[in-house]
Design a protein around this nucleic acid. Structure first.
Length: 607
DNA sequence: TTAGGGTTAG
């Protein structure tokens, strides 16, 4: 006969077969004759993720106590079905006349935290305060986590302050709450005050900062953690820090972290390799992303979605769509994110019916309800391919209120496909929405100019003047080995200014010989023509490209990261430059990737 | 028996 210790061994090693034998034996000899063993067995089933076996045993038990119920509820939390934990709980009183103890409270709070169910969580909190267990620190600790996960760090703090003996667990939950809601200094202060900082607390801090977009802070703290000599004994923090390099589009940094992953031996962690696929795609090295993807043994939906979306963003739509077919053949079920990538891919190559089919398939075959992003992608698909009536119809009938970007996409399509009448209607509507994006104003001005509506043109131009003050300064970043350089728009003061100017001038002359005419309609200022051209000449992406051409080995790819969208004139210029210098130039702008090769761009001039 | 940290879109 197995002992309680042996069952614990089964649970720890995820080897339930011995336990199952015991189950059979217990049924034979009568479950009421076995003391606490049925509860131990229940616990083991839960820890091994065998929820059906746990439920079966539970139903067979003639005497169920608080421990049986706590074990069963915990098993549901562990099996990642917290909604079942919640629905099961009322049966505790209904079937066995039992009320929640501190173990059950902790379990319910955890379920609410996983579900992000704040209202329910507050009810459980109230029940806990009115119970005999209202001083229990473990339940309080789980409440801190619940409020933190629901985005209420102040509520979490109130509970945290009421804990009499704070542990690293409660502090970590609080740190995570602060960091995820962007309260860096509070999170850091708490971590520094901890008697025993461990990998968990560092991970909570750094991952939280990365999630709230404070990537550089996340990196600096990671460096501090390494300096303190904290052992990285599991890969959690690595997937976060890989994610930070992805968001910074910092390829060299990402490569260094990849090396660290390899040296620590975590390359086979699925979370880490998925993050690496995304990182290489976001850092514009889609080939490296595909290489990592190919080495993953057990790909999950995140691995497939990352590469599908990556390929789509890099303009490799057909590759993206065939990866989807492969994924379905491999037996995986797509999720909402997968479909964003797929419809995006279709819009890149004008596969209208395929995109329509995928949208329908998402709803009908996979029962996924489309979000605003799915509608935006579909709208983009219709607009790009000139199905303007369908685009307008979608915009008016979709169950979301279309935003400025959605209306602007339609307007841009009207202009591109020469539909002035619809263009003016859309422009009038867009203007009434008081748009925020400067490029919307350019679009509006051009539309009214195309329709000879000069009064409206001057009205838009006036508004543009006001907008100019609010515009975020444009900059482009280029990485060359360990050096990373940022160029702002306007004349540069870089020590290599003269060389940069000389090269751009030379390229400008060659471009003009090839038929390039500067498109000054994109310059917002009211100034002379030659001054407008001068403005364009000093756009940050051109400075960065010129610097890249001067400093890199011929034949290598030039990678630029830009904070704003590439302007139409620079887009035309970069197409010329890549063909003149015979180099591939990859620009990641605020919206998408542009691969400039042989005088063409992967975005097919629509962005 | 109960509590803390990780990946994918825009």
């Amino acid at each position: 006969m197995l002992s309680c210790q042996q069952l614990q061994f089964c649970a720890r090693n995820q080897t339930p077969s011995q336990g199952k034998k015991l189950h059979a034996h217990l049924i034979k000899s009568g479950l009421d004759q076995c003391g606490t063993l049925p509860n131990n067995l229940l616990d083991m089933y839960g820890k091994c993720g065998l929820i059906q076996d746990a439920l079966q045993l539970f139903d067979e038990m003639p005497h169920r106590d608080l421990i049986s119920w706590a074990s069963l509820l915990t098993a549901h939390n562990q099996a990642n079905i917290p909604h079942r934990t919640i629905t099961l709980f009322p049966k505790m009183f209904a079937l066995d006349g039992l009320k929640a103890d501190h173990f059950v409270f902790a379990c319910l709070v955890k379920a609410c935290a996983s579900l992000g169910a704040l209202k329910l969580g507050k009810q459980v909190h109230a029940g806990f305060l009115l119970s005999l267990f209202c001083d229990d620190d473990v339940v309080k600790s789980s409440l801190v986590d619940m409020y933190a996960k629901c985005g209420l760090p102040d509520s979490a703090r109130l509970v945290f302050d009421s804990i009499s003996r704070k542990t690293s667990v409660s502090s970590t939950a609080m740190i995570s709450g602060y960091a995820r809601s962007g309260q860096k200094s509070e999170a850091v202060e708490l971590l520094r005050g901890m008697a025993e900082k461990n990998l968990f607390s560092w991970t909570a801090l750094i991952s939280g900062l990365v999630q709230s977009g404070q990537w550089i802070d996340g990196f600096n703290l990671f460096i501090e953690m390494r300096r303190e000599g904290v052992d990285i004994v599991d890969p959690f923090i690595l997937s976060s820090i890989v994610g930070a390099s992805a968001n910074l589009a910092a390829l060299e940094l990402g490569k260094q972290i990849h090396c660290l992953v390899l040296s620590l031996g975590y390359e086979s962690s699925l979370f880490v390799s998925n993050a690496l696929v995304d990182m290489y795609a976001k850092c514009s090295d889609i080939l490296a992303a595909k290489t990592i993807f190919d080495t993953i043994c057990r790909r999950d939906i995140v691995s497939w979605t990352s590469i599908i979306v990556g390929m789509a963003q890099h303009g490799q739509a057909n590759e993206s769509l065939s990866l989807y077919d492969e994924m379905i053949s491999a037996g995986l079920k797509p999720n909402k994110v997968t479909f964003v990538g797929l419809i995006y891919a279709c819009s890149h190559v004008g596969l209208v019916s395929k995109g329509r089919y995928l949208f329908k398939s998402m709803v009908e075959d996979y029962k996924l309800s489309p979000s605003l992003q799915h509608y935006t992608c579909l709208l983009d698909l219709f607009s790009r391919s000139g199905h303007l009536d369908e685009a307008e119809n979608l915009l008016k009938t979709m169950p979301f209120k279309p935003d400025e970007a959605a209306w602007a996409a339609l307007l841009s399509a009207c202009k591109r496909h020469g539909n002035t009448q619809m263009g003016v209607q859309v422009a009038n509507h867009l203007l009434s929405l008081e748009p925020k994006d400067p490029s919307t104003y350019i679009l509006l001005s051009n539309t009214y100019a195309g329709a000879s509506m000069w009064e409206n043109v001057s009205k838009v131009r006036k508004l543009m003047g006001v907008m100019e003050f609010k515009k975020e300064p444009g900059y482009s970043c280029i990485e060359l080995g360990k050096e990373s350089l940022v160029f702002y728009a306007g004349e540069t003061y870089h020590p290599m200014k003269d060389e940069i100017f000389g090269l751009l001038k030379e390229l400008d002359e060659e471009m003009k010989r090839r038929g390039y005419v500067p498109d000054t309609s994109l310059v917002l200022h009211d100034m002379e023509q030659h001054e407008k051209e001068r403005q364009l000449f000093w756009h940050s992406e051109r400075l960065a490209v010129a610097y890249g051409l001067l400093k890199t080995v011929p034949g290598t790819v030039i990678r630029i990261v830009k904070n704003l969208r590439v302007c139409g004139d620079c887009h035309a210029v970069l197409k010329h430059i890549c063909s003149i210098v015979k180099r591939e130039i990859i620009v990641r702008d605020a919206n998408r990737f542009h691969h400039f090769v042989d005088g063409r761009c992967s975005c097919r001039d629509f962005w």
